[in-house]
Design a protein around this nucleic acid. Structure first.
Lengths: 114, 114
DNA sequence: CCAATGTATGAATGTTCGCTCATATATTCA
DNA sequence: TGAATATATGAGCGAACATTCATACATTGG
């Protein structure tokens, strides 16, 4: 085995590089995780685990302003973490699919497993 | 069923609030997801999926400066996503446990499922 | 011990982000 | 139609973040 010197272990580097996800996927993935990188948005997802809620009630649950709630919901909406259903002047938000639930639970396991 | 008025649906709000995760957990969870909220760190995790790497080779794989790589690794280290093994003057980084792999894969599924 | 190598970290900087405030849009009701 | 309600959004501000640059720390070899 060649000793480590000033030069890079090119063989290992090239092998790893070949298995890397591409830059676009990395960016998309980072965006998805970024959606859950704020305590407020985490709480929104936590609330929606129980079922759909309109913006007004969601704001009440979180003790947050309606404006701030709406801003955060927009982020989650654009990243396809939640979907909307309009009913009169109310807009109900719900988790987009079950993947979100899974992702959230995996995160919880990591946090609680320390 | 009572019509929605200017007041909050207190029953629903209280029920949802009772099921919410607590603020500290929300913060911790947000921090965990924040660890993966940057393309560079996502690529680092992607690289480490193949096995452990020293900082120098990792920087080469990513085409990133050694300093930037080290800064990002510190974040991942402090959030327990990676662990280190020292061997001489080299420090090898590896994924901390299999949960990270799972979390990463779930994220990938979400991104690719759109 | 001294120079070289691998890694870590503090300061500085440009950018992003979350909230508030003000305001706009949409829907219902009188 | 006009007032009230529900939601959305743009501007602005302070905080947090990713990178670079310079430098410090640690380990090995001569």
């Amino acid at each position: 085995m060649e000793p480590k010197g000033t030069t890079i272990d090119e063989q290992a580097v090239n092998r790893v590089r070949a298995g890397l996800i591409d830059a676009l996927t990395a960016t998309r993935l980072a965006e998805a995780f970024a959606a859950l990188s704020d305590p407020t948005r985490v709480l929104i997802i936590s609330a929606l685990l129980e079922g759909e809620l309109c913006v007004f009630d969601l704001a009440a649950v979180l003790g947050l302003s309606q404006s701030a709630t709406s801003h955060q919901l927009r982020i989650l909406r654009h990243l396809n973490l939640v979907r909307t259903r309009k009913e009169g002047r109310l807009v109900y938000y719900a988790l987009d699919d079950e993947h979100i639930r899974d992702l959230f639970q995996r995160g919880l396991e990591h946090v609680r497993h320390r």
